[in-house]
Simulated scan of single mutants.
Amino acid sequence: MGNSFAAGSAPALLAETQDPCFTWKIHEFSVLPMGDLPINCAPFIFSGYRWFLQLSPVHRTLPFFAIPYVTLSLGIARGQGCLGLEPGVMMAVVFEFSIYNHTDRAYYGCKATHNFDVKHIYSKKECLIPLAKLLKSPDFLADDCCVFGVHILKIDVILPEEMAIVVQKNAPAVQNLFIDKLPYIKWSYSVTIGNFLEQFAERFVTYKFELDGQKWYFGIYPCGNRYSNNCLSLFLHLDGSDEVPHEYGKLVELTLSILDERRGKHYTRRCPGLVVFAGKCHWGWSEFIPLTMLFDPSRGYLVGSSCTLKAEIVMIGSSS
């Protein structure tokens, strides 16, 4: 869904858009790690759901157009209750992505659509502007600050048919992201769960630990949560507050591991992008590790009833 680029065609030109319902201001944009990792903002609430923007500073279109573009994708959180998308629900969403022109004092971008469900929580990446052009443009990059936005125009529920969502006219939300310069700060924390098998039938959390003056904990679904299939689900939680969601906000590169206590060949997954922890939120995987692999006695992830988890955090910037 959304804009598509057929062979021999270039990304569409920007057109003037409405002011966004959510604005993401990225300061020190030129200091961003310009690799393949996309960047996820902290979730924002709109029409009763948690959404987030995903920015890819370096994205290449078809081989005929190998120039790297800055792209945006819209994501929706999964979870129980009105703030998360639940299994069996499908929504067709129409929205506009935009980038702010500081000279014109107007937003320019493109319209896109996507059918969201729990297996497709990210829309297609939409090209906004070539990276090289952005970095040289005083119109879109002023004082090394680039401003992105999204305006959700329409939400139609495909399934279940009796469900309806009204697009609300909330006050626009704004997030600021400040990118740190090298060297980045790195933290790690390990916890050994001695009675892991005794708690295997239900979700549990570890004791809270402190990093950077904040409380964190692991959330574990040993048999998987409602979005997984025969896998252990593992998340790192920030024990923040929904009331002041950006009092503490950090952009991080996150790696979670289950340690191999016998051979040292740990099972490790790194988030496929940089993520913002702010307020009461979490990041991780519904399908972290297959249960067959977890219980394989040759791998050393379970020693008796003991299992060791590790979180590694590289601090890239701060959010407010």
Rank of each mutant, 00 (worst) to 15 (best):
L197T: 11
N225Y: 04
L177K: 12
A173V: 15
F148N: 08
I158C: 02
V167N: 01
I220P: 00
S190N: 09
P138N: 12
G213N: 09
E198C: 05
V150Q: 03
V147G: 00
I193A: 04
Y189G: 00
L153I: 08
V174G: 01
A201N: 15
A173R: 15
S137P: 07
E161A: 06
Q199R: 15
H151Q: 11
Y207S: 14
R226L: 10
L141Q: 08
L141A: 06
V191D: 01
V157T: 14
L211E: 03
G219Q: 15
F200S: 05
N176D: 15
D212C: 10
F178S: 06
Q199T: 09
D139A: 12
A173E: 14
T206A: 06
Y227H: 08
Q168T: 14
H151D: 09
W187V: 03
G213M: 11
W187P: 00
E162D: 07
Q168N: 07
L153K: 10
D144L: 09
M163G: 00
D156Q: 13
N176R: 14
I179D: 07
N229H: 06
P172H: 08
V167C: 03
F196E: 08
V157M: 05
F209H: 04
D144Y: 03
Y217H: 09
P138A: 10
P222V: 06
D156G: 03
K186V: 14
G219K: 14
E161V: 07
N195V: 10
K169R: 15
Q214A: 00
V150R: 06
G224H: 06
S188R: 12
L197R: 12
G213T: 07
V157G: 03
D212I: 06
C145A: 11
A164F: 01
L197A: 08
A171K: 13
L197Q: 09
Y227I: 13
Q214H: 02
V191G: 03
L234C: 07
N195Q: 12
I165F: 03
Y184M: 05
L211Y: 00
Y189A: 02
A171N: 09
F196P: 01
D143M: 13
R203T: 10
F148H: 05
M163E: 04
T206N: 04
Q168L: 09
K208S: 13
D212W: 02
E161H: 01
D139Q: 13
F140Y: 12
L141N: 13
R203G: 04
L232P: 14
L159Y: 02
V157E: 06
L177I: 15
E161K: 13
I158F: 00
R226F: 02
K154C: 07
A201W: 08
F196I: 12
W216I: 08
I179F: 00
Y189H: 11
V205D: 05
A164G: 01
S228Y: 01
L159C: 11
V191R: 10
Y207T: 13
C146W: 02
D139N: 12
V166F: 00
D180R: 15
I220A: 02
D156P: 10
N170G: 07
I179C: 07
V205L: 08
K154S: 08
M163T: 02
L232D: 07
H151K: 15
F140I: 09
L141M: 14
V150H: 01
N225D: 15
N195E: 12
G224M: 09
